[in-house]
Design a binder for these strands. Sequence first.
DNA 1: ATATAATTGACAGTATGCTGATTAATTTGA
DNA 2: TCAAATTAATCAGCATACTGTCAATTATAT
Lengths: 157, 157
Amino acid sequence: MDETHSPPLALDQLPGHLIRRLHQIAVGIFLDESRQFDLTPVQFAALDAICARPGLDQIGLSGAIAFDRTTIGGVVERLEAKGLIDRRVGQADRRTRELYITEQGRQLLDAITPAVLRTQERILYPLAPEERRQVLILLDKLVSQNNPFSRSPIKGD
Amino acid sequence: MDETHSPPLALDQLPGHLIRRLHQIAVGIFLDESRQFDLTPVQFAALDAICARPGLDQIGLSGAIAFDRTTIGGVVERLEAKGLIDRRVGQADRRTRELYITEQGRQLLDAITPAVLRTQERILYPLAPEERRQVLILLDKLVSQNNPFSRSPIKGD
DNA sequence: ATATAATTGACAGTATGCTGATTAATTTGA
DNA sequence: TCAAATTAATCAGCATACTGTCAATTATAT
């Protein structure tokens, strides 16, 4: 027998594949729930972080929500084009762009928040209450302890 | 008091955000482990599925590993350009393109498999053995039961 | 048999998410 | 002080991941 080839891996049992699928599902539910607001999950995350920390620059925003710093450029550009944030040249450091949420941005954030909360409930809906607590603890453990290996590691406050 | 605005949500406690972060981390580990093979996670998944089911068409491949059918087009195009798969016009249905792994593709799949397995171990490394079993069970439950709501639901065999 | 439906794959367009290079501004160090 | 290193943002380029649309092909229904 010249059987030099290993059998294909069963993808649907690999953690990486399960994680990719779950992410795909979570994004799908988010877009379904917030269809009327024309905001992507990443745009929501950025808007939420800018609201929480006004005057943040783009690198700071990357660190706060773990985006690649190049990706953030396009995201804030689109948020600015929609009138949801302002971008001002930094006072202390003119290389930076300080980010501020606009009144319109605040109103959208308020309006979309219930949809975002419904999204989280729908994602976890298949699990029993105790399992939901469990999975959040395990996901948090995986994310925080693998954080150093991530491409865009979270910076602590 | 005219406090009409709710406080920003704590992103790092939202399931959707944790899932996005974990996916980002998993992809990063995959690319790190398989750097020398020049294959992305999605390309690996497609190659693995084509190996397991030779003659599959592109829609069938989408259904097997939950890709959008448009996304698959570019993926198989790049796999074909690298000489890892063949694409032939379907005999029974000339609309389809039947996908076959090449000998070169099989060899790459063999070579990359240990790296893919190491990737899975690194993803789960922060967890104790019992927690690893738990999280896989919970992820599988979330994925399979939310599958109908996904944009690219898995088709059963 | 033939008009209509549905299906496969392709294409255009948009939005992440990354690499690597470049520019402008600031900081460091000899 | 002034050249060198560093940093913030941008740009070009590539690969997912989705929407919609379209042409070619097949299935259906009268």
